[in-house]
């Protein structure tokens, strides 16, 4: 196992999620590898930092506020427009060429701005800690300086392996390479990602979905996805089964023929 493979293992070690054999392997590796010991210490530090966050206080009257919304009736929920672009659907349906000429209403996003960061200098770990083990005293401190966010010059293996993201914006995940066949690409899609099959799939998505230009696909809500017209289908793959079993209200969808060309 190389360092990359050990990293997932070490995070799971911290969480007490390894079986005895894996745990023994991870601990044995930590005994031998200074780099992984330093990495494990950093994982512990992040764990501690979140654990030390002050608990959130539920606002007074929260339960009453839920009941008030409930008693106002479903009409309050239905009045919320989840998708402001829906109003364009009828216009697009009867004057497709004109709308295409006018342009597509898309989510405006900034250009990709990948922050790459070098790993902080490793701090020596005095030992290893696992969930359920005796908790050490929290005497550590963090040296605070003013917050500056400057991309580092290089990209280490760990940062390169991490999905790129634009600050708080949607993530561009690692996807299979261009030479992967369509089936492999489908398997590489994230959860709740679906392919829409059919001759007019792309046009239907453009009419009914919200285009995400960062990820080059469409977000479609569950209700709309359940009302596909004749000629379009999501297929019967494991992805669809997973989507059906999930309770997410939006799916990320690409047209299958467009996906095959990626």
């Amino acid at each position: 196992m190389n360092h990359e493979e050990y990293r997932d293992l070490l995070s799971a070690l911290l969480d007490g999620e390894l079986d005895e054999a894996q745990r023994a392997s991870a601990l044995a590796h930590l005994d031998e590898c200074e780099e992984c010991r330093a990495y494990y210490a950093e994982l512990c530090a992040v764990h501690d930092a979140i654990a030390e966050l002050e608990p959130e206080t539920v606002p007074a009257g929260f339960a009453e506020s839920v009941m008030a919304r409930l008693l106002e009736g479903e009409k309050v929920v239905k009045l919320k427009k989840r998708s402001p672009w829906r109003g364009w659907t009828a216009l697009a349906a009867c004057a497709a060429v004109v709308v295409l000429a006018v342009g597509v209403t898309q989510n405006s996003r900034k250009s990709a701005n990948t922050n790459t960061m070098e790993m902080a200098p490793a701090a020596p770990a005095a030992g290893y800690r696992e969930e359920g083990a005796e908790e050490p005293s929290t005497g550590g401190s963090m040296l605070m300086q003013s917050m500056t966010m400057a991309p580092a010059g290089g990209v280490n293996d760990a940062a390169a392996d991490l999905a790129e993201y634009e600050g708080n914006e949607s993530v561009v995940m690692t996807v299979p390479t261009a030479d992967a066949n369509p089936a492999e690409k489908a398997e590489g899609l994230r959860e709740a990602e679906l392919l829409l099959y059919g001759e007019d799939a792309e046009f239907w998505l453009w009419n009914h979905g919200e285009y995400d230009d960062a990820e080059q696909g469409y977000w479609v809500d569950r209700e709309t996805l359940s009302e596909l017209p004749e000629g379009l289908s999501l297929g019967t793959s494991e992805l669809v089964a997973r989507w059906n079993a999930s309770e997410r209200s939006f799916a990320f969808v690409r047209a299958a023929d467009a996906e095959a060309q990626r």
Partner: peptide, 27 residues
């Protein structure tokens, strides 16, 4: 794992870094 790594990288890149207390020695 990646989220922890990203968090660590974010805090390190912002100019802050962690100091480990010897009393945080793992068991």
């Amino acid at each position: 794992n990646r989220a922890r790594l990203a968090l660590k990288n974010y805090l390190a890149a912002s100019g802050n870094f962690f100091e480990f207390s010897t009393s945080k020695a793992a068991k």
